[in-house]
Amino acid sequence: MAKIFTLLLIFYLISSSAFANNITINRSSGLPAAGIVVYLTAKQNTAEIIAAKKLFHQSPTTISQHQKKFAPYLSVVATNTDVTFNNLDDITHHVYSVNANSQFDFKLRKDSTEKSLSFNKKQSISMGCNIHDWMAGHLLVLDTPFYGITDEKGRLIFNALPKGNYILSLYHPQLKKTDLQDKHDIQLPLNQTYKLTLQRQMAETPSQQSLDDFDFVENY
């Protein structure tokens, strides 16, 4: 059984390498949309896809609190995968989420730097710091391992995905509802770059900067 799986994997790797699927997301203004989460949900579970899900199962994600910001601002994790919170600052952060499905909160003192959580349901979690009001972070919990984030030019390449029919979805906290809810049917492998333009203009991503003018805040 293991041999068969290994053989299939090798085969998949050989065959898929020939198929690099290029996706480009543009804003409604035409400029490249960077930092957008693109995730694919397979419409069917072929042996190849199951093998690919195992193969693509990704390692735990770390969300740092660095310089009184959530870093990165947007994180993606698969269900039942650890998410580690790592306080890189020398002050205490009180990370919380009041999402209906997954409320949590914990304090990260300057020495106890790590806290791991995992979520078993697909959801988007918005997080804040009860001490530093301006801090904001987002965690997207997905039930598919096929996801990525567009680069500065709005580009994303999915390599070696088994052929088949998928649903392409987008996520970003500032995306408008229509863009969030749009589902795009695609067939892999793509023989040319899949270009997608957002229907609505995105809101500005918060800078996570204190609005207060006090100098001392930098140190707390």
């Binding site: 959530f70 919380y96 989420s97 918005s126 804040g128 801090m135 904001a136 972070g137 906290p173």
Partner: peptide, 8 residues
């Protein structure tokens, strides 16, 4: 009421 930068 915000949770982070999301209005909840």
């Amino acid at each position: 009421i915000n949770s982070g930068d999301m209005v909840v």
